[in-house]
Structure formats: structure tokens, C-alpha cells
Design a binder for these strands. Sequence first.
DNA 1: CTGTTAGCGCATTCAC
DNA 2: GTGAATGCGCTAACAG
Lengths: 365, 365
Amino acid sequence: MPNPPPPPRRVTIPDVARHAGVGQATAARVLGGYGSSSAATRERVLAAAAELGYSTNAVARSMISGRTHTLGVVVADVENAYFARAVRGVTDVAAKAGLHVVLANSDEKGETEKSAVQMFIERRVDGLVVAPAATDHEHLDKAVAAGIPVVLLDRALSGAGLDTVVVDNRGAAKAAVTRFTEAGHTRIAVVTSASPDENATQLAPGADIWTTTERLTGYRQALRAAGIPRGAELIRHTGYDRTWARSAVLELMSSPDRPTALFTTDNVATLGTLDALLDLDAHIPGDVSVIGFDDAEWATLVRPRLSVVSQPVQELGGLAADILVRRINGSTARPRRHTLPTAYVPRESTGPAPARVRPLRAPGE
Amino acid sequence: MPNPPPPPRRVTIPDVARHAGVGQATAARVLGGYGSSSAATRERVLAAAAELGYSTNAVARSMISGRTHTLGVVVADVENAYFARAVRGVTDVAAKAGLHVVLANSDEKGETEKSAVQMFIERRVDGLVVAPAATDHEHLDKAVAAGIPVVLLDRALSGAGLDTVVVDNRGAAKAAVTRFTEAGHTRIAVVTSASPDENATQLAPGADIWTTTERLTGYRQALRAAGIPRGAELIRHTGYDRTWARSAVLELMSSPDRPTALFTTDNVATLGTLDALLDLDAHIPGDVSVIGFDDAEWATLVRPRLSVVSQPVQELGGLAADILVRRINGSTARPRRHTLPTAYVPRESTGPAPARVRPLRAPGE
DNA sequence: CTGTTAGCGCATTCAC
DNA sequence: GTGAATGCGCTAACAG
């Protein structure tokens, strides 16, 4: 098994210096764009460089400067539209600051995230954006200890003392569900891909850091505020699977005292929920009102158009990168939480509670 | 304006060696996991390393090995679902091979792509995946000359002599449009975000490399094969903007001899087209049949469900990474084009040509 | 303004 | 099996 062959040797500064008939340091200065040099020598060096096809070795430069001009980004999954947009926000701001972005997917696995962070530390990234899947932060502390600023994205981590960029998930959810209660709904269900018991998983205590859990809390608060008894809570945990969400809603809506309003805490839950309602031939919002968390390009393509809670995803990523850039440039401001505003986008999937609850046709009938 | 402060000094191998009371080379051997060492010293070194909190400096290592264990990826826009999925495919395969992925967005600008590639060369990435926006390949040739293998993704570049991973856009489009002709449609339009005149833009000749142009060609071939005269071609170039696509289709469908079938060459065109048809209250497929290029999570959520041409996006990315890994490991196989299969996914938006063409209500009426 | 010299942290000879 | 010495390509003093 032959080892990966080493890459070909490339043209270096000494090569250029020789070719230009100048000292190594002189060539380095003009090629590196620092110090000073006469216009004459500069031209000769540049000519020699062009002739030999010289190109900077950023690795060698990084070794000295200690800066790699690289940001590490850990998200659950770039394929997820939310993270794709967030990553775009990060890269845009990063690019403007001359930083590259290295991407890692954690798939919501704490261990994967940790090893990714470890790799990033070893690779000496200049900063780290993490949408945490792990509930502890030792690995992030290590990064900070190594001089790498860390910004949390989308999810907070209590007690981590890190810059954090989030939205008020709880408040946004509460506001959304309050639309339901104000419209007279009392049977309000929530469909979420959140795990029913966070503590049963690898997650540590204090799992209220998770967005969907926060949204669930907001849902509960809205009900409570409306005087709807705790026993009337209708919660369906579906796992991160569209077909499961569909099944859950199918079952949920087959009950005689089925809900008249549905709040979905995430995109997958929303997709599965709409699948089910379509299968049931449910009239929206006549039979049931729906509000989804997170806007989507298709939200205006379904009929009725879907009312949603939207968040400024790209801005979240951009702000995270922005904070990193500032810290890289020496800012020592106390880490804080940045909460960006969400917006409720009313469209057509919400209406008053129906006077009487029509039984819904079972699917496949 | 203070310069970015240098990062703190980190624990190095000499530090560990001193602390463990061994020679530098010995410490390096056990920490680097090469050469041989006695179990006893190994333990002492490891203990010292743990105690001091040593962590490898991948930059220094790269400087010697010449390998950065990094892949550069240039796509138009990660926010685009297609590229997001492709990037995921790349990162998955890359991660398995111990490679990291650096991401750059070209926004379809050749210049942006070129500078990104240049940066990647300077940073000594081990391989490059590029979804080319530029029509020439000098910059890619430079990478190859520097010993960096390059794989083209999604779009071919004639004469570049590079590994290429694509689908048969022309054939897939032709097959899709042939469904229309076989169903008796003769007024078949295509909606595309492709530029009407490639040569008018920054693009060089031979712009038939572009996927949408290829799909357009497939459309034409299908019409010709069905004996539909060239003059009956109905092509709408809309630019990469959903609202423009909507307007174009609104106008298109207001004609008395409007088309009875619509083929959209890309996601944005599809979204805008459906916007328009929904606004027009068009009955699909009674009034007009629709086939879109590229599947989407919402394709089964609209009514009727949208028939599409789907391509194995993630696999495309995965294969690109796979080829790179092989080349990094020394493969010198002749570069070739890998064409992955597409699939026509019939759903509910396609039907026979209507007997008579019902006039469509203007929007806003 | 220019050239000489000394490292950055690690892998790698080569003697011991 | 171990340790001292050398160099990867570049930047940063420091003299000249």
C-alpha cells in the first residue's frame, strides 16, 4: 500500500530571489507586500515570480503568523435549509474579512461535534462557529483556552460564557400560539421533532437550550396564559422524520376531540404535518389552523399559503462571523447573547376556531 | 489601528519532551504515532502531553508533509438546495478519508471562482471540487500544475481534461419533454433561468456546458423528434429570479394559443411557474401539464403533486470527493467524465393534452 | 533600501 | 530504542 505521494515541490521565495538576482528577504518583502522596496527591484522580483510561476505558500505563512485566516463552522447538517442559509451568512461575512470557512457536519451527535472541534483546534482555525449538539462545553473551552474565539449559533449553552447568536424561540413560539388562543382555539396541538425526554438521550441536564424545546415551552406558556389547563396540552414528538410526523398527525387528527390548531416547531414537523392534513383532506383553516416555525420557499406555494414564524437565518450566521472577526482583531468585550428578532408572517393557514369540529376522513379511504 | 494580536503560544513537542525528560525526537515519535518507542517512554510522554495540554499543530505538520488534508469546494451558492446537498455529499466522503472541506461561493461569477481557486492553491488544498462558473480553465490548469487534482461538478468544461461528475441534462430533459409530446401536447413551453444569449454575458463560447442550456437543447431535440416545427418553440428566459419567472409565465399563459405543457429547467423557474399557475387558477394538468427539473421536498406538498426529473445530487458530490481521494492517493487514471443517471418521477402534474384550450383568468381579477 | 541570520513546530535523517 | 541536528517556506529582526 503506497503512501500518498508527496505533492511536487513548488517555486519558493529563494528560487525567485535567485532568479531575480536579489536577496531572499528582498524578494520576500515584495512578494509578501510588507516592508519597503524600490520600484526597480520590485519589478524585477515580480517579473521573476511571474516567470517561475511563484505562488505564496499560505501554510508556511500561517506557521509564522499563527493565523490561518480560517473559520471553522460546525452545524448539524448543511443539507438542512436552515444551516445552509446560516453557513452562507457566515461565509459572506468571512470572505469580506479575508477568511475561509471550513465546514463540519455534526449530525446532531455530540461526539462528532467534539472531534470536529478538536480537529479545528489542531488546524489552528482563527475562530469557531458552532451550532452545538453537545450539551457540555469542555471542548469549546479548550478552543477558547487555545486562543480561538467561539461563537454559538442557533442554540445557547448556559454557563458557557460564550458569544451566542440566537432568536427568542420561546417568545416567538408563545406569540404564535397566542394567535391561536386569541382566535378562540382551545384544542391546540404542537408537533415537534424534539425528543420527548431529553435526559434519556446523551444530552446533559439543562437541555432547555434546544430550540425546539424552547418552542415547546413557548407553546405551554401561551396555553397557560390563555387559561387553558395543563391537561389540555397536546404534544406530539415525532423524531426528525417527515413520515413519522405525518403518522403522528394522522393519529392525532383521528380523535373525536381532535385539535383545531396545529403549531409545528420545525421544518420536518411542518412537512409531515401538511402531508397528513392533505391526506385527510382537511380544510385549512376551516377544519384546522396551522402555523409553522421557519419560513420556506414553498410556504407560498401550498394552498392555503402557510403562516409561519420566520427568523433571520442568514443574518444570524453573518452576525456570528462578525463577532468572530472582531474578536480575532483583538476585541475583548464581554461575551454576550445576541438575540435577533423573529417575525410572525400571517398568510392563509390560520383562522378562527371552527364552531363545530368536522370529523376527518381517514387516509386511504 | 492595532494589528490582529498573535494567538497565544501553545504547548509544543519540545515542551512535552522536556517535561517528560526525553529527547525531542522521542516525544515527536510517540505523539506523531510513527517510528518506534518503548511502552515505558510512550506512557511518560503521553502523560506529560496530557498534563501540559499538548495538541498537535497541524499547520507545522502540513508544512513538512505538503498535505493539508483539506479539500476546496467552489459552488455557486450553498444556500441553493442543489449545492447544499452536493456539498454534503462531498463532506461525507471527505470526512471518511480524514479530509476537511473549505467552502467558497462563486455566485456564478467567474472572477470570484478564480480568486477562490487561487486562494486554494496558495493554501495548498489537497484537492479541488469546482462547479464551474467560469468558462475557461486556466485557473484550474494552474491548480493541476501545482499538483492539485481537480474534479468538475455539475457542469462539464470541454477540453479541460478534468475528471467531471455530471448527469445527462440534455437526455433527461429530452426524455421529460418527450413525455409531453407522447401525451399529445404540441404547444410545449420551457421556462428557464438561463440567460437568453450566453455570448452576451461574460461567458466564453462553448457555453453549452451549462446545465440549463443543455436542458434547453434537450427540449428542442424532443420537439424536433416529435415533428414539432422549430417555429413552435416556446422559450422563456427569466433570469435567476422567481418573480420574473412568474411574470413570464403569466404573460405566456395569457396568449390565446397558450401552451398546454410547461417544462421548467431549474428550481427557481419551477417556483415562479407554479406561482403564476396558481395565480391564474390554472387546472393542472387539465389546463396545463408541468414537469420540473430537480426534485424538492415540497414537490409532494403542492396539489397536484409535481412531476419532476430528479438527479442524485448527493451522490454526485460524493463521487467527486471519491475521485479526489483516489487521485490524492496517487491514482493516475486518465481523467474522464462520470455521468450519473437521472430519473423521471411521474406524479400528478402531467396529463394528456386537453381537447380544447380554456382561457385563463388574468391574475388579480 | 537591502541582505544576512535566526527561528515558527514538526518530521526526519543519522549516529549513539 | 533514543537523541542531536537539519530543513520545510516564510517572516522578522538586525546590520549594512
